[in-house]
Design a protein around this nucleic acid. Structure first.
Lengths: 243, 243
DNA sequence: ATGAAGAAGTGGTTGGTACCAGTGAACCAG
DNA sequence: CTGGTTCACTGGTACCAACCACTTCTTCAT
């Protein structure tokens, strides 16, 4: 291990994280702690620090007396409550976010979209379909609808370099005031299952989000299909009183 | 520090957590790590382990070269998330809510429960299993765990007439200060599918809830399995500012 | 006075050692 | 074959020592 830059245990985290995501599979066993000390010539303290971080990040789980294993559920129970930005969240977990744009097309709002977006029937809207990945693993499929009237001349080029919210704010001066999300469990259908590289019939979390600007215009309506084994939604209530 | 039961660093966590919540204020400075080693006669390693846990839990923050301080545990003031009340929601939809108690039994906390409820291994707890229905249709299966110590002598009779939170408040004077919920999608297993009268393999929403009283004791831990086709969870974010 | 150097405090990193506590396989006595 | 013991492995806990990096205050020379 190099002696420069980052602390040793951080280097070890990166190294192991790479090994885990690239070369190993869920429930594979990692070398024992004592083994790792020999391999990388660091103390067991350092190894354990690195493993603790990986455990916290959800990459591994440990079993007393048995060993350390690659975890299946990589998603951390991260607070989606404050801000929802896929990229930020993934980066906060030390993962490399990536977005693949499948297409951006213009169409006329059908009934259900017009209703949800508070637009007249047939109003021009953009449909943006994206796949969100972390460390190269596809985690969710997103279908986003945007009123052409609010985002005239939107192109794929704008979206490849920056996040949707960045484009909204910087290119169109649209600020987000409120976001409403609805979650429900479902089953991944064939096509999306293929895109997410999971068997059809796997559980998923469907997320429906509409975003409103200060003038109460709905500026975005998104339907997401998230891998059920990878997403947890956490909420904290303070001063609750319920049945 | 006593030499029994829990590991030293866990004992230290509890001790400090108590001190922090009871006697200290946000941004107060804690004694230095080296100071704590002397005070409690443990090694610095142990002190650091305890502090790391407290940091992770959000009780403290550390500043290199300056010290360790009590965190402001208000966290997200923008938490306008709707509280979830089964009965209220059902009534709002004009449906008749109903709860069937399957059983109430006492058992000793296994590992995972002890961990989630912050209890010693083997501590006596009640397990309450209920089915929630609307208009006679079963919608969710709930497994609730309650510390016997906090709810001594709990009986089915108490729960048949009133809601769990009503019993907590009225019969035991336990007030709820905070609730943390985690949602994730899953597949209903055979037995629960039968109870919910849906085919096995149907989608469900798994909900994990732990409730805390003002003294930071976990007074309830509930695992729910909800019919995916019947439950939607809605969240409203205000003033989102993201990338 | 003023600014640089240093001391002393803080948390952060890394090394080492020892022992405890689960796990599972090998082994042996019945 | 069965059941218990032992042993070699695993991760978990706990101790110690040393040094680094950052902050703050003191001290001293200019």
């Amino acid at each position: 291990m190099s002696t420069y830059e980052q602390p040793l245990h951080e280097q070890l985290v990166e190294l192991l994280r790479h090994k885990i995501t690239q070369e190993m599979h869920p429930h594979d066993r990692l070398p024992s702690e004592r083994m790792l000390t020999q391999t990388y010539q660091v103390s067991r303290n350092t190894v354990r620090m690195a493993l603790s971080e990986l455990e916290m990040m959800g990459y591994i789980y440990r079993q007393h007396g048995k060993g350390t294993f690659v975890a299946n559920r990589v998603a951390n129970p991260t607070n989606l409550t404050t801000t929802y930005s896929f990229s930020d969240q993934m980066r906060a977990e030390g993962r490399h976010p990536e977005t693949r744009i499948l297409y951006l097309q213009q169409l006329e709002a059908p009934k259900f979209l017009a209703a949800h977006m508070n637009l007249p029937l047939g109003a021009p809207i953009f449909k943006l379909k994206r796949i969100r990945c972390a460390d190269g693993v596809p985690l969710m499929v997103e279908r986003t609808f945007l009123p052409v009237r609010i985002f005239p001349g939107l192109t794929v080029a704008q979206l490849t370099d920056h996040s949707l919210y960045h484009v909204m704010a910087e290119d169109y001066g649209v600020k987000v005031a409120e976001a409403n999300e609805a979650f429900y469990a479902g089953i991944i259908n064939g096509k999306d299952a293929q895109r997410l590289t999971v068997p059809a019939g796997s559980p998923c979390l469907n997320v429906q989000r509409s975003t409103t600007d200060p003038q109460e215009r709905i500026v975005e309506y998104t339907l997401s299909v998230c891998r059920g084994d990878q997403f947890v939604y956490q909420v904290r209530h303070v001063n609750v009183a319920q049945s």
